[in-house]
Simulated assay, not measured.
Amino acid sequence: MNTKQKVLALLRQNGAILSGEKLAQEIGISRTAIWKAVRELEKMGYQIERHANGYQYLPSDVLEADSIATNELQAANIFLLDETDSTMKDAKLGALAQQTTPALYVAETQTGGHGRFGRPFFCPRGQIYMSLLLNPNQSFEELPQYTLLAAVAVSLAIDEVTGRKTDIKWVNDIYLDGKKICGILSEATSDFETGRISHVVLGMGINFSIPPETFPDGLEKKASSLFPEGNAPVSRNQLMHLIWQNFFELLAGLPDNSYLKVYREKSFVLNKTVTFTQQGVTYSGIAKTISDTGELAVLTADGMKILSSGEISLQSIH
């Protein structure tokens, strides 16, 4: 550990006020070096209260690989960025560079973030923007339903930290109290020579804490955040850790597909009237079921229509 990390660890470990002299003795450096380390930690976003008799660590929401890591996702493979065009692009570049997987790319903000069909989205600082790079080496037929797995993992994690119940809009959006708070996107790259899936990138954006008045005009009616008033009881690191812990546990449990039961129970689309366009024709019907491979079956006046998440976006639900 460098000096900053040592100072941070001591302040966190104790929780009480520690004098510069005490910190200097513990680490074996000068008090001036302690002062400089504290200044650098403050610049990084850590909250350290200064008292007449020393320093005291206050809960701080700074991205940390060690805090996000799980047994399956090592801290060395978690890449933290202040600003990026898109964490999805970062993950794809990681694949080209043969990055060890699983690897996670996390950013404070994105300048070119997008959702399904290339739609741009609002990316204020201090939320959760991350993409996971996987190397499944499987055929399309063998490939797990990563988007559904991720939706369940995120939904359960948010339920746990908020004490409230989230809903899932087929196929990739998480809602809380009727407003969108998370979008999920998965993309796969195939190897034409082997016919196998070489890489999968699973990206998500989560509105962690955004005051309603800061949303662009009209968006506040459709979107919200987990803690719009601030004072979150958990950090972003803790939520990300829980999400990926859930995800890898679900993944390890395959072929057990009990996650599909959770996905269906959380769906607010099933048994509702939905409107969609397929091959240039607009249909309305009752969403009947979600298949084991993630397709939505809708009963219309023209019979049952099977909707694929990669081709169709629902236009209305009521």
Rank of each mutant, 00 (worst) to 15 (best):
E40I: 00
D66N: 15
N172F: 10
S30N: 04
Y55F: 13
P211D: 12
A37Q: 02
G280E: 12
L299R: 08
I78Q: 10
K43V: 06
K4N: 10
V152I: 04
M1N: 02
K180F: 03
N53C: 06
I197S: 01
L149Y: 02
I290Q: 07
A69V: 10
T273W: 06
K288L: 14
E220P: 00
A95G: 13
K165C: 01
T189M: 08
A297L: 15
I184L: 14
I48P: 12
I48V: 09
F227N: 06
F247G: 04
S316L: 09
V200Y: 00
G118T: 10
Q138I: 06
D85Q: 12
L314A: 08
E141I: 13
L81C: 09
L8R: 04
I29H: 03
Q25A: 14
V106H: 13
S139T: 15
D302L: 11
L96C: 04
A52M: 12
V171E: 09
N246Y: 05
I17P: 14
L260K: 07
T166Y: 01
E187R: 09
L134A: 05
T162Q: 00
E265Y: 03
A24Y: 03
T70Q: 13
T277R: 10
E187W: 05
I243F: 05
Y46N: 11
S155Y: 00
T100F: 12
Q99A: 14
M304C: 13
L185K: 14
L270R: 05
K6T: 12
I128G: 02
S258R: 07
L254R: 09
I317A: 08
L73K: 08
L63Q: 01
G94W: 00
E83H: 05
G303R: 12
A301V: 13
A151H: 05
G203K: 02
K266L: 05
Y57E: 08
A297W: 03
G218D: 04
E187I: 04
E40D: 12
V269L: 01
D159N: 07
F248D: 02
L132G: 05
E160Q: 14
I29L: 06
I34Q: 02
E21F: 05
P124D: 03
D302F: 07
S313A: 14
K272C: 07
E26S: 15
Q145Y: 02
M130N: 05
C123G: 03
S291A: 06
I68V: 13
F192D: 02
K169Y: 07
L143I: 04
S67P: 00
A287S: 10
S186K: 01
K221Q: 13
L8C: 08
G310W: 03
Q315F: 10
R196G: 00
K272E: 15
Y55M: 03
L219W: 05
T282S: 15
P144E: 13
L8N: 11
A97Q: 15
T70V: 15
S225G: 06
K22H: 10
R125F: 01
E40N: 08
Y105T: 13
L23W: 10
L242R: 15
V62K: 06
I184G: 07
A16D: 12
L8H: 09
L219P: 05
S30R: 11
L41W: 04
A75V: 11
E72I: 13
K36Y: 09
R31G: 05
S291V: 01
S139V: 04
F79P: 07
F276G: 08
E64K: 09
